[in-house]
């Protein structure tokens, strides 16, 4: 059974988003996504400063068996990327919602967070997929 913490927002492409105290958001891929991919062996994150559209392909996670694009959940600017994943991609498997975060974004429109699913909607969505 996949986990989805209640304090996060979720996308249909299996990213999670956490609102930080400074108004930025942190995002990563969900526990469900990492479990489908299996052991990750390579993660490519975007350069800080890059401007992203909502649903734009912005990172790549590769497991032994497949490569998968990660999409920006919302429009915004990359303020920080998790460079530690380059040498420890398996962190996404072991701690998808914590140390396995991919990047921090400054949202173009802070209210756009409301467009995303909450945890119970997301769990229902992956059940129906």
């Amino acid at each position: 059974m996949s986990e989805a913490p209640d304090d996060l927002k979720y996308t249909k492409s299996h990213e999670w988003v956490r609102l930080n105290d400074d108004g930025t958001v942190t995002m990563g891929v969900t526990d469900h996504a990492q479990s489908l991919l299996g052991d990750l062996v390579y993660v490519e994150v975007p350069e800080p400063g890059r401007e992203l559209e909502a649903e734009e392909a912005c990172a790549v996670v590769e497991s032994v068996k497949a490569a998968s694009d990660v999409y920006s959940p919302l429009a915004g600017t990359v303020v920080e990327a998790n460079e530690e994943l380059a040498d420890a991609p398996e962190t996404v498997n072991s701690d998808a919602y914590g140390a396995g975060w991919l990047m921090k974004l400054k949202l173009a429109d802070p209210d756009s967070l409301d467009d995303l699913m909450d945890a119970s909607d997301y769990l229902e969505y992956i059940d129906s997929e």
Binding site: G38, D39, V41, V64, K65, E90
Partner: peptide, 8 residues
């Protein structure tokens, strides 16, 4: 079976 937890 594709794996039993971790392929690696």
């Amino acid at each position: 079976p594709i794996h039993y937890g971790s392929q690696i």
